[in-house]
Amino acid sequence: MASLPPRKKALGSKWVYKIKYHSDGTIERLKARLVVFGNHQIEGIDYTETFAPVAKMVTVRTFLSTATSKNWELHQMDVHNAFLHGDLHEEDLGVLKYFLGIEVARSPHGLFLCQRKYALDIISEVGLLGAKPAGSPIEQNHRLAHAKGELLAKPESYRRLMGRLIYLAVTRLDLSYSVHVLSQFMQHPKHEHWDATIRVVRYLKGAPGHGILLRSDSDLSLQGWCDSDWVACPLTRRSLTGWLVFLGQSPISWKTKKQPTISRSSTEAEYRYMAYITCELEVVLYLPNYENVSDLDNIDLHVAYNMRQYDDRFEQFKLQIARMERNLPAFSAHIGITPPSPPPLM
Score class of each variant (00 low, 15 high):
residue 102 I to N: 01
residue 324 M to V: 09
residue 140 Q to M: 13
residue 147 A to P: 07
residue 234 P to N: 06
residue 242 G to K: 02
residue 316 Q to W: 08
residue 56 K to T: 00
residue 202 R to G: 05
residue 126 V to L: 01
residue 256 T to M: 13
residue 5 P to Q: 06
residue 166 I to P: 01
residue 272 R to V: 05
residue 276 Y to W: 07
residue 236 T to R: 04
residue 236 T to I: 11
residue 115 Q to C: 03
residue 89 H to Y: 14
residue 8 K to L: 09
residue 333 A to V: 12
residue 74 L to K: 02
residue 338 T to L: 13
residue 282 E to S: 13
residue 259 Q to P: 01
residue 97 K to G: 14
residue 225 W to Y: 15
residue 321 I to C: 05
residue 292 N to K: 12
residue 335 I to H: 04
residue 93 L to Y: 10
residue 345 L to C: 03
residue 339 P to Q: 07
residue 317 F to H: 09
residue 26 T to C: 02
residue 109 H to F: 11
residue 235 L to M: 15
residue 203 Y to S: 03
residue 85 H to M: 14
residue 7 R to H: 14
residue 139 E to I: 06
residue 85 H to C: 05
residue 31 K to A: 09
residue 200 V to E: 00
residue 150 E to F: 10
residue 139 E to G: 08
residue 198 I to A: 08
residue 30 L to G: 10
residue 147 A to L: 06
residue 129 L to R: 11
residue 199 R to I: 02
residue 109 H to G: 12
residue 126 V to H: 00
residue 55 A to Y: 13
residue 100 L to T: 04
residue 344 P to S: 10
residue 210 H to E: 14
residue 181 V to N: 08
residue 120 L to T: 04
residue 293 V to W: 11
residue 280 E to M: 00
residue 228 S to T: 09
residue 19 I to V: 15
residue 233 C to V: 02
residue 278 T to K: 02
residue 66 T to R: 09
residue 159 R to F: 00
residue 239 S to C: 08
residue 52 A to E: 09
residue 78 D to A: 02
residue 133 P to Y: 00
residue 47 Y to E: 03
residue 179 V to Y: 03
residue 85 H to R: 15
residue 269 A to M: 05
residue 301 L to I: 08
residue 332 S to H: 14
residue 101 G to S: 03
residue 232 A to W: 08
residue 145 A to R: 05
residue 289 N to I: 15
residue 47 Y to A: 01
residue 277 I to D: 09
residue 71 N to H: 13
residue 215 R to L: 04
residue 107 S to Y: 12
residue 328 L to C: 13
residue 307 M to D: 11
residue 213 L to N: 07
residue 315 E to G: 11
residue 243 W to Q: 05
residue 60 V to Y: 05
residue 343 P to Y: 01
residue 279 C to N: 04
residue 17 Y to C: 11
residue 334 H to T: 11
residue 14 K to F: 02
